[in-house]
Simulated scan of single mutants.
Amino acid sequence: MFHYLSADAAARRSQFDRAIDRLSDVIALDPGNPAAYHDRGVAQQGLGNYRGSLDDFDKAIALSPRMARAYSSRGISWKLLGDFDRAIADQTQAVALSPWFAEAYSELGVAYLCKPDFYNAVHCLTEAIHHAPKNAGNVKQRGIALYCRGDFKAAIPDLQRAFDTTNDIYALLFLHLARANSRENASAALEIDAVKVRSWAWPSAVVGLFLGRLSAEETIAAAGTPDERAEAQFYLGQQHLLRGDHAEARKALEAATQTCPPWFNEHLAAVADLQRLG
């Protein structure tokens, strides 16, 4: 019990290497413990060792074949490894074993979104919202799935709700794009919502870009990591689209698909927008 409590405390502090050590101690004392294998797999995910996590999830499932969360966690590793078919298979098994498992429905929706299968993504995210109606992340994700599907008006209430509930700047950015594509007065609405934006750090810098307060160069400069710079290409592409410059938009959106991880919303939306460009 001591090792398990120590592992849990370490994981909560994102000390995943320490959590792995403590869970390995648990497994050495109790090699038939499926929860310990599962939790060590989750800690492996925290370190970015997705391949290594698969072995632990496999062992957890072998010991407890009806352990829905082990299938779901393994599905997350497959998603992060870019194998979306296996991710879908595992999340489907998780919801079959536990029909009220909101997180598995959410992850299943994301995996379908990565395919990209926008219709099944919206369906699964709707199920996730049904089982966890207070989870604003699922609401935002359904809004983004609707945006990718081209249902811009339907996306607006979800994205507005997600932003109002959590002040999620990414929800606000996609809300602006959904409004613009719905031919609404998107800039005026963004001015109102931007009152909640406290600085032009990333990703708030994109709000400044859309409002004309930051240049493209200033927006890119606010993106401090490679992933943020990859996201910036998507939003620069959107700015070109809003101005009607399809050639420059295509260049930036293609750059986003090449540099954003394939499960990032910016990658998924860039693929959808490139399809709409033809």
Rank of each mutant, 00 (worst) to 15 (best):
F2A: 03
S14R: 13
F16I: 09
F16T: 02
D30E: 11
A35K: 10
A36M: 08
G41P: 11
V42A: 09
G48L: 08
Y50A: 11
L63R: 08
S64N: 09
S72V: 04
S73D: 15
I76A: 14
F84V: 13
D90N: 12
T92M: 01
A96T: 06
P99Y: 14
A104H: 08
S106I: 09
S106P: 05
G109K: 05
C114K: 10
P116K: 04
D117V: 04
N120C: 06
N120Y: 08
A121W: 00
V122L: 11
V122C: 14
T126L: 05
I129L: 02
I129V: 06
H130A: 13
A136H: 05
G137L: 10
G137M: 09
V139K: 15
C148R: 02
C148A: 14
K153Y: 03
P157L: 09
P157T: 07
P157G: 07
R161D: 04
R161V: 01
R161S: 09
L173H: 02
L177K: 01
A180W: 12
N185P: 03
L190M: 10
L190I: 04
L190C: 03
V197E: 00
V207Q: 01
V207D: 00
V207K: 00
L209I: 04
G212K: 01
L214P: 01
A216Q: 07
I220T: 12
P226T: 11
D227S: 06
D227V: 07
A230I: 03
A232R: 02
Y235R: 03
L241Y: 05
A247F: 03
E248F: 04
K251T: 15
T259Q: 15
C260Y: 06
W263Y: 15
E266N: 14
H267L: 05
A270H: 09
A272T: 07
G278E: 13
